[in-house]
Each structure stands twice: as structure tokens, then as C-alpha cells.
């Protein structure tokens, strides 16, 4: 005989919201699981009326999409929550932002229809990354980037949970360039010096090509060996315009969708 949870099923979701948030500063060292824990506790401290899943272990309904790797900062992280009582999105944004630790910041919350909204995950097609390379001069970076872009494929290997995987880091790269204005100083360390900044646009594929894979490729094919640890930040993620290489705001189609 199958057991059933006691009591009535949890109240249904009456509101769906999409959230744009940033992972900054020291908290770039939090993993995605760390963020999930912090976020779900922040929801409870802010008394957000979450909708819960049914079953023996009810969980608040949160869908995460495309989280940045541990150690990278991000200005463009997204998730979706479902509520059992409707809230004002801006009130909610402020309450959750205050409840989260500093450096985890809620930028915007938009409402989408409870049913039938196009998938958020499907819109996250590509990312724009900034890679600060302290100790690397502009010309040195430009040479390596040129070699990388000229190659038809750049095979790199990375240790994953399922062992060492080898894949092409070149194919999904839509754009890679050295920013025109060199940085005024290194991101870490005390010595002033050159600091090249790379701007990378990469398509989301499986297995994911991450900024560190591109750096591995640059080292292999362009002999680029940054003397200090690069500081990597995601600037944007969203729908990709293949012709221009532009990445647009994934929440743009949702604004004004509900209650306008």
C-alpha cells in the first residue's frame, strides 16, 4: 500500500515571477548550491508566501537556470519562483534583496502568467563574459585571441564529475576580443601593471564551454599564461542574435505581460 502525505495538498501557485540577480565581490566564491540555500532562507526570513511542491518533502517552488560557476562573478543570473499569494513585484524585490547577504543583489522581478509563459531557460542561449587578466599586456592578449579565433577548433580538457572530458572550446565562441581601454590596474594583488580585459560571447551548449575553458584554449593555442588569477564576470545572458552576436535581455518579452 502506497503511503500518502497527511493533510490537504499545499495551496496552488497563483503567481509566477522571474528574478534577475547578481553575484558579486566575495560571494562569487559561493557555489550554486550555496546560493540556493542562502536564497531559500532569505525567502523564509522575508516571509515570502511561497508555493510548495506536494509530497513527503515539500519544497518551495524555485526554478534555477544557467548558474555561473563557482569563483566567477555575475551581473546576470536568473531564476523563477511561484507564490501561493500574489505580491507586488517591486515590494518583493526589495524584501528579498534586504534579506539576502550583501553581494547577492536582486536587480529586478517581473511577473509572468501562471500558465503558458515561454520557458526562461530556453531564452538563456548565450552569455557575455568579461575576463580581467592582471599582468597581461594588451598586445600579448590580442595575439593569443587572434590565434584562438583563427583556429577551426580548440580541443580542451576539464575534470568534471564524470571524469576528464575533452571538447571543442572554439565552436561555441561567438565573439572574443580585447577591450580597447586597457585596465588601470590588476584586479587582485598589490602591484600596479598592465591588465588586459577580454570580452567573450559564448553560446550555451552541452557540455558547457566556460570562461576557464576558453582561457585553457588561449594558453594552449596562444601561449597566454596570465601570471595572476583572472577575475571573471558574467555581464549578460539571454537570447542570442546569431547575425550580430548580440545578447539581449531575457526578461524583455515579459515586461508588461501581466497586470498592465
Amino acid at each position: 500500500m502506497a503511503r500518502k502525505p497527511e493533510g490537504p495538498p499545499p495551496p496552488p501557485a497563483v503567481q509566477r515571477l522571474r528574478m534577475h540577480y547578481a553575484k558579486r565581490g566575495r560571494l562569487r566564491f559561493s557555489s550554486h548550491r550555496d546560493f540556493q540555500r542562502a536564497f531559500e532562507r532569505a525567502l523564509r526570513r522575508a516571509a515570502v508566501p511561497m508555493a510548495y511542491s506536494a509530497g513527503f518533502s515539500p519544497h518551495p517552488k524555485v526554478s534555477y537556470a544557467g548558474a555561473a560557476p563557482t569563483g566567477t562573478g555575475s551581473e546576470a543570473e536568473y531564476l523563477e519562483i511561484a507564490l501561493a499569494q500574489a505580491c507586488d513585484p517591486e515590494q518583493l524585490r526589495r524584501a528579498i534583496d534586504e534579506s539576502l547577504p550583501p553581494d547577492l543583489d536582486v536587480i529586478e522581478i517581473v511577473e509572468v502568467p501562471v500558465n503558458g509563459a515561454p520557458s526562461l531557460a530556453d531564452r538563456l542561449q548565450a552569455s557575455v563574459w568579461a575576463l580581467r587578466l592582471p599582468g597581461v599586456a594588451y598586445d600579448e592578449a590580442a595575439r593569443a585571441v587572434g590565434a584562438f579565433l583563427a583556429a577551426p577548433a580548440v580541443e580542451v580538457s576539464r575534470m568534471t564529475k564524470n571524469g576528464l572530458r575533452t571538447f571543442d572550446a572554439r565552436g561555441p565562441v561567438v565573439a572574443l576580443e580585447v577591450a580597447d581601454t586597457p585596465g588601470d590596474g590588476p584586479a587582485t594583488g598589490e602591484q600596479p601593471g598592465p591588465c588586459a580585459i577580454l570580452r567573450l560571447v559564448v553560446r550555451h551548449v552541452t557540455p558547457a564551454v566556460r570562461p576557464d575553458d576558453v582561457l585553457t584554449g588561449l594558453r594552449q593555442i596562444g601561449a597566454l599564461a596570465p601570471p595572476e588569477t583572472p577575475a571573471v564576470t558574467r555581464l549578460a545572458q539571454g537570447p542570442l542574435d546569431e547575425s550580430s552576436g548580440a545578447v539581449s535581455d531575457p526578461l524583455a518579452p515579459d515586461r508588461g505581460d501581466v497586470g498592465a
Partner: peptide, 23 residues
């Protein structure tokens, strides 16, 4: 010591444990 520590964090397991800033 954080600026010096920060440069080491990308190379260790579970770096968040050394960062502090807990609620």
C-alpha cells in the same frame, strides 16, 4: 589578509568556507 587570500581561493575546494560574511 583577504586580498592575498582571494588570489588563492580559485585554486581550493569549497572556497566559500574561507570567505566569511555569514548572516
Amino acid at each position: 589578509l583577504f586580498p592575498r587570500l582571494e588570489a588563492l581561493l580559485p585554486h581550493v575546494q569549497k572556497p566559500i568556507q574561507y570567505v566569511g560574511g555569514e548572516l
